[in-house]
Design a protein around this nucleic acid. Structure first.
Lengths: 145, 145
DNA sequence: TTAATATATATGTATTATACATGTATTTAG
DNA sequence: CTAAATACATGTATAATACATATATATTAA
């Protein structure tokens, strides 16, 4: 079985278009469906903070490959809603560490439920095997440069 | 094999996160890499117009599931760059029809080449079969409500 | 130790993509 | 022929983002 690199130009072109469409569709879906008080960024950040110890802006920005200024604003939004809590970084007076609050955990759970529901709809006609394959393939793409 | 609806909650949750990450990654990639003079919308619209006869704002907005005002601005941008041409709709004095220009076709080809190159990188390690599966699955998602 | 430099974060500004509300011209229905 | 609907353009608002810059703190080199 050949590599995609060697393969049919046509398939790559179709992939290109399908990806472009998926991105637009999924982006606007995220906007449409505000899923409680959480946007996509907030959702991802809370998910991350719900599994890790408190993190600073820089670490979060690197984790999500966003500019630190962007992360700073996203965290500020979460802090403003009371979903994360700012703690002084004991090792660095310039920095803060952020941890998810109980309220944040609650909001995250609610958003997750709503999103999961939406996903059940979207993937209604898929078999489990297809879902698994798709997830694996997306995962690979997410971890590629 | 069961439907995703009946399946493991864990898989759906992972899909949810992977999708959220993909969207963010792909969106920012699209911004970073301006691929000539075409953004994602322009690219999709020119692709569409390169295969179809001239279309009005409304039809395009429906095709791409965007608000007509959004499509109006996107087409205006393409028109401003000379990539599409406005023709009066002979059957409706309120409407215009838009067709791709030679310059638009040229720009589209250039953007396509650059994007395809990027895709070859992204999918470098994939087999052809995986690429095909992925495309089919994305296509289904794009066509779901 | 002190001065220069680097770093972590916050904020100002700009861009892009989007939706919704509204206004205008034109078409269609009654 | 008038009333309602439609196609489009434009005003306004929001969200996510990057880059440039400012500030406080930390680190390094002399």
């Amino acid at each position: 079985m050949g590599r995609v690199n060697e393969m049919n130009q046509e398939l790559i072109e179709k992939l290109d278009l399908e990806m472009a469409m998926l991105i637009r569709k999924a982006s606007s879906m995220a906007v449409e469906k505000r899923l409680g008080n959480l946007d996509r960024s907030g959702y991802l950040i809370l998910h991350y903070l719900s599994r890790r110890s408190s993190q600073g802006i820089k670490a979060l920005a690197e984790e999500f490959r966003l500019d630190a200024s962007t992360m700073s604003r996203q965290i500020a939004a979460l802090e403003g809603k009371g979903y994360v809590e700012r703690l002084p970084d004991p090792n660095d007076g310039r920095a803060s560490l952020f941890q998810i609050t109980d309220l944040g955990s609650l909001e995250f759970s609610k958003a997750k439920e709503a999103r999961i529901h939406r996903f059940h709809e979207l993937f209604e006609s898929w078999t489990e095997e297809e879902g698994l394959q798709f997830m694996e393939l997306i995962g690979r793409l997410n971890r590629a440069d």
